[in-house]
């Protein structure tokens, strides 16, 4: 249980990328030409700013550009981590399908931790009530079929800490 394996693949970012990340990680300015404003702020041309952002988006260093809503303000009060014991030879194929369901925000394969923890597939579910989350879990259960044994839903009882990515 001490191995730290992951599918991370670091992509090279240089000092100018870092300046760009630092200048934009808390958000874009809400002005008609936000990339011009950023360019001026960090002393690059707007072409350079847009080219670097485009490249980071292509390499996956940027996941997406857009708005990040507050779940709770949208009425998504039930936040459940659903966990599933899925046959190893099918977990990748089924994980792809579950990750693409509209109500799943994150989906991962993780190691089991036997005997306490038999689950290897994690899917985060967000709903307006626990009943809604339970119904989503039923859809996942149906999709997994016989490939899945035990499952559970761990509801959040509170956020104790949440900090975003901080590039230093």
């Amino acid at each position: 249980m001490t191995g730290l394996t992951t599918n991370r693949q670091a992509v090279p970012v240089d000092a100018l990328d870092l300046r760009l990340i630092t200048a934009t990680q808390s958000g874009l300015p809400l002005v008609p030409r936000p990339y011009h404003a950023i360019a001026e702020q960090i002393g690059l041309s707007v072409e350079e700013v847009m080219a670097r952002l485009t490249r980071m988006l292509e390499t996956g260093a940027i996941r997406r550009i857009g708005l990040v809503p507050n779940h709770y303000a949208l009425g998504y009060r039930a936040n459940g981590m659903s966990v599933w014991d899925v046959a190893d030879d099918r977990v990748v194929e089924l994980g792809e399908q579950i990750g693409s369901l509209v109500f799943v925000s994150h989906c991962y394969v993780r190691p089991r931790c036997l005997p306490l923890w038999p689950y290897n597939l994690f899917a985060m579910l967000h709903g307006k009530s626990r009943e809604e989350v339970t119904a989503y879990a039923e859809e996942i259960r149906a999709l997994l079929g016989e490939a899945c044994g035990a499952s559970d839903i761990l509801y959040s009882r509170g956020i104790l800490k949440k900090t975003g990515l901080r590039i230093t």
Partner: peptide
């Protein structure tokens, strides 16, 4: 937030 969402793993 409104803007780019960076991927810590890839950085």
């Amino acid at each position: 937030r409104f803007g780019p969402l960076f991927n810590a793993d890839r950085l």
